[in-house]
Design a protein around this nucleic acid. Structure first.
Lengths: 226, 226
DNA sequence: AACAGTTGTTAACACTGTTTAACTGTAATA
DNA sequence: TATTACAGTTAAACAGTGTTAACAACTGTT
């Protein structure tokens, strides 16, 4: 529930790093300044920031390499690269999609702020589009996760798809044959039994909020209520 | 199917409005900022928000007047009033029922967030919890439960549907053939016998309140009285 | 290729809800 | 009061569902 946006700033030149850090802090960002790529990665793991500002040329690990590693863990986290004049634009361009942006040095603080806010807004839109509130849970279809207070459970693909359909039909009966055809391809006996198993698994994972229930309607299907 | 909560914020002081708007947006609300009561009303008509935060003292139309107008169209929409220090409490108290709340300026964002979430939760409960009082029982159609004092009995789907129809026709005769066609598909002899069994089961479960009775009308059907 | 880890399916057995059946009870009519 | 049709109750039978664990298929890694 913290409201301050946490940012990692990886910049090896101390003077520049300090100035940028202070300017951002004046705009109410929490800035974690790192002097090289490795430190930035470690800090990333510990702090889980919302956004990263990475100098491309850094000791120990350059910004692009670091970005690739971080993207494996969080494909949507916004990253802004700071590039030297010498840097060719096309190298950066390759990265300029998804939650990325870049700034050529020297840059003004205004430019940086604008880009940070743009990426944060973009991320917010993506996040809110992908998640569904389900009682006390937040269900993220993309990430296949169920978050309850501070604990996040990961769902398998089947669990996730099944839950998604239950949510889309909430308070209505989701017919067995419909969902079986949709997710399993056909509604034969064995697939039906397989589906039963997944219902059990979902019920277990949804137990943290007892007001959420998957109710069986004998002979027809299931109804999700909360 | 969109999940983001839309809020109207009517506040004539630009600086305050902007700060609150941004703080709420950081909490993933969609905020429509209006500078006076008339604009707020128009925006309300177009956007149908889930909740309103209204400054009491505003140009063109004050918060209370606006609230009254909006309540004519939607008696349940949550409204939070922002009141200046000078405002007497009792004026606000009169409004402080149903889906209303108020905050004295100056207020912290935390207070506002808490109140917003409380009202949204309250509204969600009202919307989704469609329970029916049945004598000493509370019948929850969604959950398929009958609650008597502190004990809750769960009903099967058939029991639940049958009871629901009896309640909808309370004090009137619910015809056998009608309910058989509705719940069983057709009113042949065997289904009729099956229905008898369910009437027996319901009678058993309703015994805790002896004033409730399912009375048979020979040749026609059943009548629920209490 | 061997491996560990994960995910989905199958199988087995326990349990539940609905229907069927058998038997008992009751109201209406002659 | 005897007859008859309808309704009440109980329990057995059955089909549908719940749950667990073992197994198979797939994944990525060494």
């Amino acid at each position: 529930m913290n409201n301050v946006v946490k940012i990692i700033l990886a910049e090896d030149e101390p003077a520049l790093g300090q100035i940028v850090k202070e300017s951002l802090e004046m705009r109410n960002f929490e800035v974690l300044l790192c002097v090289d790529g490795e430190e930035a990665y470690k800090t990333y793991k510990i702090e889980s920031p919302e956004l990263l500002v990475l100098d491309v040329m850094m000791p120990k690990k350059d910004g692009f390499t670091l970005a690739k590693e971080i993207r494996k863990e969080d494909p949507n986290i916004p990253i802004i690269f700071l590039t030297a004049k010498s840097q060719t634009e096309d190298v950066v361009e390759g990265f300029n999609l998804g939650g990325n942006d870049y700034l050529k040095k020297p840059f003004s603080m205004e430019e940086l702020i604008v880009r940070i806010n743009a990426l944060l807004k973009r991320k917010k839109n993506i996040d809110t589009l992908q998640t569904i509130e389900l009682g006390e849970f937040t269900f993220d279809l993309q990430k296949q996760t169920l978050t309850h207070k501070n604990t996040t459970t990961s769902l398998t693909h089947r669990e996730s798809e099944l839950l998604h359909h239950l949510i889309l039909h909430k308070d209505k009966v989701l017919e067995r044959s419909f969902i079986l055809k949709k997710l399993w391809g056909n509604d034969d006996f064995f697939n039906a039994r397989s589906m039963d198993v997944f219902i059990t698994k979902l019920r277990k994972k949804l137990k943290l909020d007892p007001s959420i229930q998957i109710i069986n309607v004998r002979g027809f299907g299931y109804k999700l209520i909360y």
